[in-house]
Design a protein around this nucleic acid. Sequence first.
DNA 1: ACCTGAACACCGTTCAAGT
DNA 2: ACCTGAACACCGTTCAAGT
Lengths: 205, 205
Amino acid sequence: MLTRERIVAAALALVDAEGADALSMRRLGAELAVDASSIYYHVPNKAALEDLVVDAVMSEVDLSADDPAAPPPARVLTALRGMAEALFAHPRTLPLFASRSLTTPESLRPIEHLIGVMRETGMNYPRCVAAVNALSFYVLGATTAQAVGMLEEDRDARAAAALAALPAEEFPHITAAIATPGLLGDAEEFELGARAMIAGLLAEG
Amino acid sequence: MLTRERIVAAALALVDAEGADALSMRRLGAELAVDASSIYYHVPNKAALEDLVVDAVMSEVDLSADDPAAPPPARVLTALRGMAEALFAHPRTLPLFASRSLTTPESLRPIEHLIGVMRETGMNYPRCVAAVNALSFYVLGATTAQAVGMLEEDRDARAAAALAALPAEEFPHITAAIATPGLLGDAEEFELGARAMIAGLLAEG
DNA sequence: ACCTGAACACCGTTCAAGT
DNA sequence: ACCTGAACACCGTTCAAGT
């Protein structure tokens, strides 16, 4: 029996293994030993399926490390770490996050959690939402930047070549930045940026 | 005569008018009154074309408002405003930004500029890059959030319906946030988040 | 040098028909 | 209720051939 769960699990596995471009209804059907058209009985269309893949990844976020007694900045940092961990476990789904949206209660739980923590600082809702939005995009950005290294196959040699070909006189900083080895590990870099953003966003509350 | 410039201009116009999904080599060929295969003489493939569309938008960023004598935080804010303005002028290209990368000198100029300004605070290169990365993703995130309102056609009614259907007991904050009218205009919200991030990122320099 | 046409190997989606 | 098969209207990319 085909179920929505089986379909989503197969779709996520396919994206993990071969990238977002490899996800097609026909290919997915083959993977499930079923005709492509059968999928439409369980999922309205491909866009909805992509939403569900994004939901599945976001549902893996572990919020159990939260200590409700800790100060808000520490709690937010813990939550962001949890998000980064889940995203990093599925780097090839990252492009989907930008164009798709969260649709299930399970996947919206981390967002609910973050708004709740921000809220305890006395910030009003519109500002909480803006702050959570900024933080979420930071996590997505930092995770994407880290994933670039491990996904050379997906990555365009073109982009790297373009950076390398940049005239050093006109682009001294980019040139120098490329030449400077990352003094910080990825994890430390993530922490630094996250702490900075949290401090900034909570300071003006 | 077909040129790379004409192709990119037509591609950007097409995405602006009908969204990123409408961009196909065949459709673009029709728009240029040329066979789809002719495009391959000027651009290696569709991924490269999408890179060039992203480059074209980023090249529109106006950095002329920069005052080199101003303090770094003010200069960074000015640059982010310029980026947001350019992105907001082409909201339907935003999904492309997440999956494509900048490849031309013109489009990398705002990045070079930002790194340079950060650099004047004495921050080392890896941290400058991390900071600029975080700020860029903030601009992308904030712009995307703002664009959602004006692009209902692209937007899934599914996403909105999912939020509305969320059980209020389990998701009190999201429910409340939806019900709370945006007290801040989009522009003010962008400014607040941007100032907060800049303050946070420059503070620990 | 620049463009075309045909071909190859794919797509997403619908819908009558089967069980 | 659940799945299939065929069909429709598309795709990206290649490559010999034309001018």
